[in-house]
Design a protein around this nucleic acid. Structure first.
Lengths: 98, 98
DNA sequence: CCATCTATTCGATGGTTGTCAAATTGTCGT
DNA sequence: ACGACAATTTGACAACCATCGAATAGATGG
């Protein structure tokens, strides 16, 4: 339990959103790449590694953000992403209760 | 790490199957109920608690079994289910690496 | 053998969703 | 103000999927 990991409480609705977001392999792959980035991950970088159009990528990022799995930091022209590890951990913890 | 928890190795394909299976709230609810049962959970019991037809339930159980998340034990007329907690744990462990 | 019970399979359907091309918005430098 | 660049939104489409009713399979008891 790190200092930064404030208590995250997920309601049923968000759990469903997260589960759905993780249900698509492409989104999981994107999430892994965002999580693997040294700093925050810029949008254009994801476009290079994933073989999809910008429109599709944007759609997936919105789903991930909507589920609360990523934070979006907009800096001028570009957008950067960061994994909400506290949210992910809370989701996994909930599933682990099964 | 219990004695019974033999090492479970998930390939990319199974991870995708599990993620998809967990992507539907109804299946998660079913999985929770199976996991909460004192012994193994009979099919007909699930039919009572979940408000779906037998056909739909059967479909969901197949998805869960296909993902490796449950074991199916057939005893005469009835079918009983048990959560594969080792598989679930392996999946969660993989996601936790993000 | 037949009736009954449990569970699965089949066929169909309405809704969801991943994907793209094109148009749009927003930002920066010149 | 204008052009170039980054990202989002829109509209459309094909594929997928949860769901159901009906038909089928399999087991049990009389």
């Amino acid at each position: 339990m790190t200092m930064a990991a404030r208590k995250v409480q997920l309601d049923e609705r968000q759990i469903a959103l997260i589960a759905r977001a993780l249900g698509d392999p492409r989104r999981v792959e994107i999430l892994r790449e965002v999580g693997a980035a040294k700093t925050t991950c810029p949008c254009c970088q994801l476009l290079e590694s994933q073989s999809i159009t910008a429109a599709t990528l944007s759609h997936h990022m919105k789903e991930l953000e909507n589920a609360g799995l990523i934070d979006v930091i907009r800096e001028g022209k570009t957008a950067r992403y960061a994994v909400r590890r506290d949210v992910l951990a809370a989701y996994l913890k909930d599933l682990a209760k099964i």
